[in-house]
Every structure is written in C-alpha cells, then in structure tokens.
Amino acid sequence: MSYSRILKWISGIFELVLAVPIVGGAIVLGTGYSALGFMLILHAVTLILSLRNQEAIYGSVWGVLTSLLAWIPFVGWALHLVAAILLMISGSKKTKRYHYPPNQL
C-alpha cells in the first residue's frame, strides 16, 4: 500500500470525525480553526503524493476545498462528510500505473 493511500485513509477518518455535528464543531472551534489548517496541509501532501503515484486525486481535491470552506456552519458538515466518503473510496482503490513500452517514452 502506498503512502498516498495510507494518507487518504487517515485524512478520511479525520474528516469523518469532523463530520460528527457537535464533536466536529467543538474540535474546529476549540482549536481556533487551526484544525482546518492542519487538514489543508494533510490534503495537500496527500494530493502531491497521489499525483506522483498516478492515483485518483478527487478525494484530496475535495478535502482541500473542504478545508477552505468548512468554517461555514452546516456547509462545513456536508463538505466534511462528502470528503470523508470520497477519500475512503479513493483510498480503497488499487493503484493503476501506466506502463509504456520502451520505444514510446
């Protein structure tokens, strides 16, 4: 399992925790919104690793979007939930690597 897939699962679990209405809101408010900054960095790292490994990036892109917009009440809850689902789906998929014949490089 690649590091990007592991990070997708970890960030998906974190997003799922933040999607719990009272718990997630308490975490975000209790950390002074720095939890969203941490998640933004985690999603950015996961996105870069996914690009390097030629893996799906939709979960990480949605996670970055979520980190930027999750400060909006109720919208943040929905974004966290969708991000968690997308990250876990993309984390469960096997890596499709493209192998080019030597004469086509």
Rank of each mutant, 00 (worst) to 15 (best):
T95E: 07
F14R: 05
Y58P: 06
P21R: 13
L105H: 06
N53S: 14
A19V: 09
M39I: 09
Y33G: 10
K94R: 08
L36D: 00
N53R: 14
I48L: 10
S34R: 09
Q54E: 08
V64Y: 05
V20S: 04
R52L: 15
S67N: 04
P101F: 07
K93R: 15
S34T: 15
H80S: 00
L87K: 01
T66K: 12
S92V: 00
M88V: 14
N103S: 15
F74A: 15
G76L: 08
L7K: 01
Q104Y: 08
A83V: 02
S60D: 11
R97N: 13
H43N: 13
I72N: 11
W77K: 01
W71T: 14
R52A: 14
S67D: 02
G30S: 04
A78Y: 13
I22N: 10
W62L: 15
I72K: 10
F14Y: 11
A26P: 00
Y33R: 12
E55P: 01
L68W: 02
S50I: 13
K8D: 02
L105C: 06
Y3M: 14
I89T: 05
G32D: 05
L7E: 03
A83W: 02
E55Y: 00
K94Q: 12
V20I: 15
Y3Q: 13
Y58L: 13
L7W: 02
P101N: 09
Y3L: 14
K94N: 10
L16D: 08
T46Q: 02
A44F: 09
G76H: 06
L87D: 00
R52Y: 10
S34E: 07
L87G: 03
F38C: 00
V23T: 10
G59P: 14
A35K: 03
A26K: 08
I85Q: 01
G37K: 06
V82Y: 01
H80C: 01
K94E: 11
V75Q: 13
Q104H: 07
N103F: 13
T46Y: 01
I89E: 10
G91D: 05
L7Y: 05
A83N: 06
V28M: 12
L16K: 09
V20D: 03
I13Y: 11
G91L: 02
I27Y: 01
I10F: 04
H43K: 07
G37D: 04
K8Y: 00
L29Q: 13
S50D: 15
V61F: 02
A26Y: 03
V45R: 06
A78L: 15
S90W: 07
I48A: 15
A19E: 08
E15D: 10
T46M: 00
S4N: 10
Y98P: 00
I13P: 06
S50C: 11
A84W: 04
A56E: 01
S11E: 00
S50G: 15
T31S: 15
L18N: 03
M1Q: 12
H99P: 02
F74G: 06
V20H: 01
G37M: 08
A78R: 12
L7M: 14
I6E: 06
V45Q: 07
I57L: 13
A78K: 08
M88P: 07
E15W: 04
P101A: 14
S34Q: 11
F14I: 14
R5A: 13
Y98Q: 12
A70F: 08
L68Q: 05
H80Q: 00
W62R: 07
W71K: 06
V45L: 14
A35V: 04
L105M: 09
G24C: 10
A35L: 08
S4Y: 06
K93V: 09
S2L: 06
